[in-house]
Write a protein that binds this DNA or RNA. Structure first.
Lengths: 206, 206, 206, 206
DNA sequence: TATGAATGAGGATTCATTCAT
DNA sequence: GATGAATGAATCCTCATTCAT
């Protein structure tokens, strides 16, 4: 009788293409935390979604708070990067902002920073929280910096750049809004971006 | 050292001046849920804060979800009422909006509707969720309606009133923002309101 | 405008036909306990089914155990009475037994005495248990007595009357049995009674 | 006085001679459920009796219903096996039945299948109940099958084999009966078995 | 007679975390 | 590296019972 699944003997060669397990865990956890929040996702949930055991996760991330911290940092880092990239393009500032909004609305289900920061405040340790806050601040500073530059260039009126940056992010999140019947109020991300930036621009133009 | 006398079983003697316990529970729970969110507040926490036992809370609210639902409904109702009241005053629309922002920034720690709705989505039952969504919708409709009226009156430009309403609320919540060092970016609620409405008004004026 | 439901003023005349509340409670409780057992029925369940408050039940029955005790006693008493009545009829003993079986299979969903006695043993106080056991014994003694009489009369063979009585009751409960597909193994109570008594009779006839 | 050393966290050192904890839990739970029933035994009771924590039990059995289901299945399986074994012996059918009864009366405190099935019906989930019912059916089918064989062989009269099987089990449980004073009505399991089978045999012999 | 309000004790279940292997 | 086995503390919820009215 034939053996069912013939496997090569000995230690399996490491699959070069396989992602390190640590990264799989982080990505999976990030996705879950975004969807359901810190308290609604258990370490068991993450483990199951990764097809590993809880102990494996603890091997890489000493506490749940650390995993959450790592997830937030990675996420913000990525957002910051993508913001930087778009802001560097050589189209008008207004067009850059519009592109930024469109891409973000397309890329994610409502990543609400305020939410993550709130959960961080409540659930993380002091040191973890400081890390996360620094990263968030960094992310906002990126936009703030761009606002300052454009103020200097005269593209937009002079004003409180921090306030402008936060207003921009706040308005961006309106793109996700659904009305009373559960329908998006915009037909596409592109249209949402257009309307949002038109609105924003009126406030900041000279 | 004196032992604290343990509460007694049975119906307590009624104090005419006392607030109904059901209201105390609701108010306390609302406060806690606002501060820490659904999952971070246990029924035991609420009970302790009310100085009653858990069973007492269950006497009035059959599940934690029901308590949360009631808290949200009451809160939204109150917000809606206060919005209505301010919007009815006989000062200019811009001034009414400014007053609205100032009062809300003063009255509460960041009541972030998006947050509550998110927790509702994740944690409530279908029927509870529907109730809460209806109430939220109602609240927004109040502002939307005012926007429509002012569009007709020609005070503001014609546009998507739903979008205007949500943008207004989104910008309002910028008033709570703190910068990298944990300092509020506005010195007072009045100043925040002034700046926010100036910003908003540029977007909506004719 | 008309008042909605005009009621007669003053204390309502006591409805002579209305059953005393105490009896309603007992009957309702008995029905529930039979269907679901002691532990699966809460005082709240009973109260709800009676349309009164828990406190009302406690007004009549000082503890849940007392309510259960009363329910069992009433039930056994009634069963004993109906047994006595049937056994007194002037038809052959075999026919009396058959009638007894048929009537009991028709009257109730499987009233399994062993079950009640077990729950009594586990949940009742010493004194309550003694009462119930006495009553159960009494019920069995009724049948036992009949067996003895018939032994004397020569209708059935001489043997252990206690054993006969219990065998009779055990066989009676086979009438409720369902097979693997959930179908009753007898088409009617009458047929069940016939088959059961035929079976029993073979064992006890001379 | 010595404090009992608290159990330590984490995976305990493995003792080769020790029974798997999963089995210990199942056996203990079975014993307790038999004695006191589903609702009267809490997970804490089981845990205490096993000298493990509740969490350990949940590690192996995801719900109390699952534990009960497993316990019933194991029990019925064992009973079925022992029935099969005895029925295969090369002594007369009547002797085999007698042995079967004697062994069961000796082996257990009144394992009342009807009781377990009732608690199952009330407390288990649909799917759990189906499993248990299948297993119970299987157990009865074993006896039924033997009855059929003996009918063919002419050892007993032809009749409804399902009814015979259930009657047999019903009569067997009479062996546990105690009279009014709490005394068993038979002096020994052997005598009970003898009397029960004599009784049963009269009903089924040709 | 009847009830509304409240409690203390427990019961099922979840979860972050630990540790020997 | 990765895991299986186990825990302690908490969480939501139920329930028998009590007592002023």
């Amino acid at each position: 009788m034939l053996k069912q699944s013939p496997r090569v003997l000995g230690r399996p060669r490491h699959d070069e293409n396989a992602k390190p397990k640590k990264d799989i865990v982080l990505e999976t956890a990030t996705r879950l935390f975004i969807k359901e929040g810190y308290k609604n996702i258990s370490m068991a949930d993450v483990a199951k979604a990764c097809n590993v055991t809880k102990a494996t996760i603890y091997y890489y991330y000493p506490t749940k708070g650390d995993l959450y911290t790592s997830a937030l940092l990675a996420m913000m880092d990525q957002i910051k990067l993508s913001i930087l990239q778009i802001l560097e393009e050589s189209i008008s500032f207004k067009d850059r902002l519009e592109k930024l909004v469109e891409i973000h609305l397309s890329a994610t289900v409502d990543i609400d920073m305020k939410n993550f920061m709130r959960e961080a405040t409540i659930n993380l340790s002091e040191s973890q929280l400081i890390e996360v806050q620094a990263s968030e601040n960094n992310m906002y500073k990126t936009i703030e910096q761009a606002m300052k530059v454009e103020m200097e260039l005269g593209t937009i009126r002079k004003g409180n750049a921090t306030f402008f940056a936060h207003s921009f992010m706040a308005l961006m999140s309106v793109g996700y809004v659904k009305d009373g019947e559960g329908k998006r109020i915009f037909q596409s991300e592109a249209m949402a971006a257009r309307e949002i930036i038109d609105f924003f621009w009126k406030s900041v133009e000279k």
